[in-house]
Every structure is written in structure tokens, then in C-alpha cells.
Design a binder for these strands. Structure first.
Lengths: 188, 188
DNA sequence: CTGGTATTAAGACCAGCTACTAAATTAGTG
DNA sequence: CACTAATTTAGTAGCTGGTCTTAATACCAG
């Protein structure tokens, strides 16, 4: 059983597809300098679906991923919005927003949910975060539904103070106070 | 010109695909109760690409989006690291980290670069952000190279204060002061 | 009835596969 | 060295979800 070369090739195949899942069998075969037949056999052995399947599944959760990260602008799903007063969003903690292969939700996402909610709350064309004070009280884990609630406090001119409280199961997990700035001139 | 029905159908077609871009021509034709030919003609007239094209493009930018935030853990590229003292990272502003189709880099990424740098600076197994004060001084634009420099200030027990200054072309753009907490016990 | 628009049908072709069969090649062992 | 088993390659037919082209048909107005 001299299948060292094959094992090696399998590793390379996996790695090629990790870098670019949109390669056809032909391209893969050429990269690994084997025949189409061999490549298809390998792909079968490794249980890797055909290109079209891979595209399909990526396209499918491109949707959900889109929705979570940048979609339109809000990270999380906007549930309520009373412009310039308050808003509510929820973010479901899935594996791909966790921190270093743990079960803990990465702070980036908690921040992003809160910051985008703060921005969404303000009813102006162009709004950016100017400053913030944030505190993480507890971690959130895979499976948690993170509810973020924003409230507009004082505002002066083009600056609003928006506070955001994020909680899981009613327990406060994160608090922030953002200074949000509305830009009337369109920069650049 | 009895094309009222056709116009109506075109609207429905667009709306069907907006709801679910992964429908085949056959499914669409049935939904709209026309023949395959008609449906393909319509799709052509509206300049809508075939299913596989739609999948491909969705799959493509599912990719780039994934790759951009999270990548591994550090947002940006780590250039220097003196553990528990200071560190330096750079983030190149590309189109996919911008805010609302503008040229301005989204605050999420600036925060993420700074926070991950602060964490990377601390030489402990498990480290999370406990609190932060941050200020955005100027926006950053597509093409900018954002340099973030961290410095560890005081530390007491398992809490470190890490300050991060991010700049573009030597001009300070963002400042933050993080309280970083090292967790010795592995939570969960 | 004629003409124009809209719809449908029919046929040939393509990419990127699957599934299967069969032959050729390459080790590895006695 | 010959033999066997694993591995690789080749080749065929068939599928999906299209493309593109040409031709036939339905509909409706003037």
C-alpha cells in the first residue's frame, strides 16, 4: 500500500479547494497533474461534492452570511426602529462569529451589532461613529440570541449620544455609549 | 400593444428572483405559468443571467466577505510584536471593508484591527476585551494603509490596559484604550 | 384580411459533471 | 523474475440547466 503520493495529493486537493472552492475538476486535475478520472475518483473518496454543488451551498448561505456581516448595513436583524429614539436588533451566534475556535462570540461582532444599531437609530443620510465607551460584562456563546437595544440620549447639533445594551436571556452582556456624528456634507 | 401582461410578468419575475435567486428557469416558468421559451425570452430582455451565473456570483462574494473579517483572528497583518509591551499591524483598505458603498472604511474594521492587535499584544493563552474607550478622529478611505500601534500601559493581576493608535500617512485617525482581561480558567 | 407583437415549439449545442466499465500502469511481495 | 493487488487512466452514455437559432402559432387592432 504505497499510497503516500495519493495521501499527499488528497491534502493538496483539500488545500486547493480551501483557497478557491470554485475550481472545476479540469483545473484541479491540471494543478495536481493527474487525469480527470483520477481527480474525480479522489474527490469521490474525500466526499467532496462537484463544483455546482459547492457553488449552490455557498450561494445558499451567502445569503445568511450576507445578512449577518454587512448585508445592508446592520449586523444582526433589525426588529424595531423608532427613528431618533430607539431600536432593537437580534444577532444569532453561529460558529462563524466565534473567537479562535472557542464557543465564545468574538467581540468584533458584538461591537459591530451595537455600532450598526446605533447608526441605524439615527435618521440622517450619512452617519458615523465618532467615539465610544464600551464594556463587555459577560461572554456570549454559540447558540445565544443577542438582543441589542439602543436609546438616543442627548443630541447637540450633529452629535447624538446613543447608548446600547446587549443581553442574552435577559442578562446584560455588553453596554456601550456611542457618540454618533451626522455628516451633512458628503465627504469625498 | 397588449404587453400589460408581459410587464406585469416581468415585475413578478424580478420579485420572485429577489426572494429566491436560486430558482431554475423551469420553476420560474411554472410559477408564472408560461412556457420555458417565454421565460427565457423574458429573462433575456431583463438582462438577468442564468441560474448558474447567479450562483457563481453569489458564491464569489460570499468568499471575499468571509475572508475579510475574521480571516484568522488578527484583522490586518501583524508586523511587529514584543509580547506584553507593544505591537504593530497594518490593514489595507479595500473596497469590501467600506461603509455603505462609500469610499470610507467602516468603523467595524478599524475597531477590529485595534482590538485584535490589543489581544495579540498580550502574551497569555486566553484573552478577551473587557472594556474600551475609543475615538475616531478622521475617516480612512479605500487605498489607505492603516497602521495600528499598541502599547501596554499598566497591568494589575489579570487586567492589562492597552492603548492603540491607528494612523494613515502619519496622521492619527483613531485612538483607543482597551482593558484586556486574561482568563486563566477556560470558560465553558 | 393583413401586419405586428407575443408566445411557444423544436433542434442543435455546450459545460461540467455522474455512473459505469474496462484497460493500462505501477508498486510490492514471494 | 513473475504474479497480484492497488492505482491510474480512458472511454462511453446520460443528466441538468442552460445557450442560440429558426420556425410555427395565437392574438389583436386597424
Amino acid at each position: 500500500m504505497r499510497s503516500e503520493t495519493r495521501k499527499e495529493r488528497h491534502k493538496q486537493l483539500v488545500s486547493l479547494l480551501r483557497d478557491n472552492p470554485l475550481l472545476t475538476d479540469e483545473e484541479l486535475a491540471i494543478s495536481l497533474s493527474v487525469s480527470l478520472s483520477t481527480l474525480r475518483l479522489d474527490r469521490g473518496l474525500l466526499g467532496i461534492p462537484e463544483l455546482r454543488e459547492r457553488m449552490r451551498s455557498m450561494a445558499e448561505n451567502a445569503n445568511s452570511r450576507l445578512r449577518s456581516l454587512k448585508s445592508d448595513e446592520v449586523v444582526g436583524e433589525l426588529l424595531e426602529l423608532e427613528p431618533n429614539v430607539s431600536a432593537l436588533s437580534v444577532l444569532s451566534a453561529t460558529e462563524d462569529i466565534t473567537f479562535r475556535h472557542t464557543n465564545i462570540v468574538s467581540d468584533y461582532y458584538i461591537y459591530s451589532q451595537a455600532a450598526s444599531l446605533a447608526i441605524a437609530t439615527i435618521n440622517e443620510d450619512m452617519v458615523v461613529i465618532g467615539a465610544a465607551r464600551i464594556r463587555y460584562r459577560k461572554p456570549a456563546f454559540i447558540g445565544d440570541k443577542i438582543l441589542a437595544r439602543s436609546k438616543v440620549g442627548t443630541f447637540k447639533g450633529n452629535k447624538y449620544v446613543v447608548s446600547v445594551h446587549s443581553s442574552v436571556d435577559g442578562k446584560e452582556m455588553f453596554v456601550a455609549r456611542f457618540v454618533v456624528v451626522a455628516k451633512n456634507e458628503f465627504i469625498q
